[in-house]
């Protein structure tokens, strides 16, 4: 089972990573959701002692690891929070840029940087040669 869980979590993680690299912002968020699912699965797997639900443990049977369940719950909730937030950012991006493409965003940023660089003179002011010869 160790291998199975590792494989499953890694596969989900890999697909998520691939999605984050795509051009479509909705798919990027989907990728983040997958990565978070993968992390939760790892959390659950890290306490992989199958057993009864840890409710009213009698002591006869070893219950499943309750601590990782608590951690997984927390992680799931946090995953929900970041997903909602990411989606909101994406919605704002779409509303402002009228596009859901990462490329569009990058281009916008590149233009912004270029404008900044152009609007200001270069930092290093090179001396004119003749001026340097014997100034004043």
């Amino acid at each position: 089972m160790t291998l199975v869980f590792a494989l499953a979590a890694a596969t989900i993680f890999g697909f998520g990573a691939y999605l984050v690299l795509t051009n479509d912002l909705v798919r990027v968020v989907a990728g983040m959701v997958l990565i978070s699912q993968s992390a939760v699965l790892v959390v659950i797997a890290s306490g992989l002692t199958r057993g009864a639900a840890p409710i009213l443990p009698t002591g006869d049977e070893r219950p499943s690891d309750a601590l990782v369940q608590a951690m997984a719950l927390t992680a799931i909730v946090i995953g929900l929070a970041v997903t909602a937030l990411l989606l909101a950012i994406v919605a704002r991006v779409r509303a402002t840029l009228h596009s859901l493409e990462v490329r569009e965003l990058a281009r916008d940023e590149a233009e912004h940087t270029a404008e900044i660089e152009q609007s200001q003179e270069p930092q290093l002011e090179e001396l004119d040669r003749d001026e340097a010869e014997d100034e004043q």
């Binding site: 990573a17 984050v20 990027v28 983040m32 990565i35 978070s36 990411l86 994406v90 965003l105």
Partner: peptide, 10 residues
């Protein structure tokens, strides 16, 4: 914000 969030969430 988007860049920050995505990269740091990873």
């Amino acid at each position: 914000a988007l860049i920050f969030a995505v990269v740091n969430l990873v």
